[in-house]
Computed example of a mutant assay.
Amino acid sequence: MRSLRLLASALALLLSGLAQASVGHGTIAATAEDGPVTLYYPSADAEQAVRRGPFTLQVAPQGQPVRGNGRLVVISHGSGGAPWVLANLARSLVQAGFVVAMPEHRGDNYKDGNKPGPESWAQRPAEVSRAIDAVGRDARLAPLLQLDKVGVYGMSAGGHTALSLAGGRWSPGGFKRHCEAHLEEDFQSCVGLITRLTGGWLDGLKEWAALAVIRLRFDDDTPRVHVDPRVAAVVAGVPFSADFDMASLAAPPVPLGLVTAQQDRWLIPRFHGDQVVAACKTCELIADLPTAGHGALLSPPPPGLTGLVGDMLNDPPGFDRAATMPEVDRKITAFFAKHLLEDRAPRGQASPG
């Protein structure tokens, strides 16, 4: 109890000190190996309206960083994702003192979608590790951070990244076996947004073609693992997880939080998030959203989506985004504060022994 009181006191002091801080926004440039890393961080400069794609963000572009809580959270975007659709969670984290880094995953982002699925999943955890390295080399932010305890958040394909960094083992062959067993029931998770089943006579041909491609490309059963000792807390939101060895997620070596959405039509929960919840004996279910769809965690949500992508990502009827998502962001932020700051005490007080 004493440690919890100290943590609450430390957070209260931290938040009071950051009350006037704005959300700074910057970028670490791409390299020959990696895409750019988008940054959100506590700043002393005033926010202004900044246009990014179809979104208008209130941030301080290239604002002067100020000291926050000294911790970094890396966010792994979903398939075809952009750093703007997770800006609300980034704001919540920054207001609690965190620096947030969002690497652009090669071949599976809003500019380049040539490597979705297992090919991207295999490279994403290392891209997160190199993003941590890149922040550690940043002249303005590195002096304000300790990188021995880093948080990782991921949504959808990014949730797959998060589970990998939490100690999960998976293989392309596991993806193949899932699709062989459940192609019709979990069609979009196996084929993405290329096509859909409509109940018509072409469905059989679509399923045959999908399995032929999957069997040709994903027959490797070699376990994929990635260990980064700096990662100390992980949250996976609506993750692709059917290809994981669930035994590897029964007792993760780091605290693992989960967010699920029961109306998810892209990654059917019983094959993905719900399986992790059932398998993991030490995980925290941060939020189980009974009326939310797959796109609930995209915040702000992409406007004007139509067709198949709209069906998969738009909010289903009955989901109250305004009443739900700010609280989910607060809970995710609190999870990282608990596990990344719990050994800290207010100035002048010793940490509990």
Rank of each mutant, 00 (worst) to 15 (best):
348 G>K: 10
194 I>T: 05
76 S>Y: 01
204 G>K: 00
125 P>Y: 10
342 E>Y: 14
192 G>I: 03
128 V>A: 08
304 G>L: 11
234 V>L: 03
319 F>L: 08
271 F>A: 04
278 A>D: 07
294 H>K: 12
340 L>W: 13
68 G>I: 05
300 P>A: 03
8 A>Y: 08
43 S>D: 02
60 A>H: 02
15 L>W: 12
218 F>C: 00
351 S>L: 13
92 S>T: 07
207 E>Q: 12
263 Q>T: 11
6 L>D: 14
218 F>I: 00
48 Q>A: 15
207 E>Y: 00
9 S>V: 11
246 M>D: 09
28 I>W: 04
337 A>L: 07
342 E>Q: 14
133 D>Q: 15
142 A>V: 15
57 L>T: 01
195 T>Q: 10
53 G>K: 07
351 S>E: 15
69 N>Q: 01
109 N>W: 01
176 K>E: 10
330 R>K: 15
56 T>Q: 10
85 V>Q: 10
94 V>K: 01
137 R>W: 10
215 R>Q: 09
160 H>D: 07
36 P>R: 09
315 D>Q: 11
287 A>D: 13
114 N>L: 08
261 A>Y: 08
142 A>S: 15
4 L>Y: 07
328 V>E: 12
58 Q>D: 13
193 L>Q: 03
273 G>Y: 00
49 A>T: 07
77 H>N: 09
298 L>I: 03
175 F>D: 04
106 R>V: 02
138 D>W: 07
353 G>V: 14
277 V>K: 14
81 G>N: 00
82 A>C: 11
221 D>Q: 05
213 V>F: 02
351 S>H: 13
333 T>Q: 06
347 R>L: 15
144 L>D: 13
251 A>T: 14
58 Q>M: 11
238 V>N: 12
213 V>E: 10
332 I>M: 15
37 V>Y: 06
16 S>A: 15
181 A>L: 09
147 L>M: 14
52 R>Y: 06
276 V>F: 08
287 A>C: 08
